[in-house]
Amino acid sequence: MDDRDLLISQYIDNELSLEEKAEFVKEINIDDAFCAETLSMLDSELLMAGMIPDAPPVPEIKPKRGRILTPASVMSFTALAASLLVAFKVFMFTPEAAQQPTDRYRFVIHVPEAQHVALAGSFSDWQSIDMRPVGNGYWQVSVPLEKGEYTYTYILDGKIKIADPASPAKQVDDFGGENSVITIGSDI
Rank of each mutant, 00 (worst) to 15 (best):
C35Y: 01
P165K: 01
D3Y: 00
D125P: 04
L80Y: 14
D130K: 13
E20C: 12
Q115V: 09
P168G: 08
D157N: 09
Q100N: 12
I28F: 00
R4L: 07
V86E: 05
I182Q: 04
Q100V: 13
I61E: 11
F91W: 15
P63Y: 03
A87T: 06
N136I: 01
T102L: 14
Y154R: 06
P168T: 12
D157C: 11
Q10R: 11
D174N: 10
W139D: 03
D3T: 01
T94M: 15
S44D: 04
S9N: 12
M48A: 05
K62E: 11
Y150T: 06
I188M: 15
E146L: 02
L69N: 08
L46N: 05
D164H: 03
V141L: 08
K89T: 05
L42I: 12
T153G: 01
V181Y: 02
K26S: 13
S124F: 11
I61Y: 03
Q115P: 12
T78E: 14
F175E: 12
E15I: 08
L85P: 04
A79D: 14
N136H: 09
H116F: 11
M75S: 12
P63A: 01
S83F: 10
A118K: 12
R65Q: 12
D164K: 00
V86I: 14
E146H: 01
K161R: 05
W139N: 00
V143D: 11
I160L: 07
S40G: 07
A22E: 14
P95W: 07
F175N: 13
V108E: 13
P56F: 00
D174K: 15
R132C: 15
L6P: 02
P165D: 07
D164T: 08
E19D: 15
A120L: 14
F24P: 00
I28C: 01
M1I: 00
S124W: 04
Y138K: 02
G135A: 11
K64R: 10
Q10D: 11
Y152I: 00
E149D: 09
I52L: 00
D43Y: 01
S186W: 09
N14S: 13
G158Q: 10
R104K: 14
R106G: 06
A120G: 13
L42Q: 11
V143E: 15
P133T: 03
P133A: 14
T78D: 02
T151P: 02
L84I: 14
Y152P: 07
L6T: 05
F88M: 02
G158M: 10
F88V: 02
S142N: 09
F93C: 07
Q100E: 14
L18P: 10
I61A: 12
F77Y: 08
M75T: 15
Y138Q: 13
A118W: 13
T102C: 14
P53I: 05
S167Y: 03
I182A: 06
V143T: 15
L42Y: 03
G121E: 13
M51A: 13
G185D: 08
L46S: 10
I162C: 03
S142R: 08
A55H: 10
E45C: 07
R65G: 04
D174C: 14
K21N: 09
D5T: 06
S9R: 07
Q140P: 02
N29W: 00
D164I: 06
P63S: 06
T153K: 04
Q10F: 08
G137V: 00
Q115F: 10
D43E: 07
Q171D: 08
S124T: 09
D3A: 04
D157M: 05
D173G: 07
K147G: 06
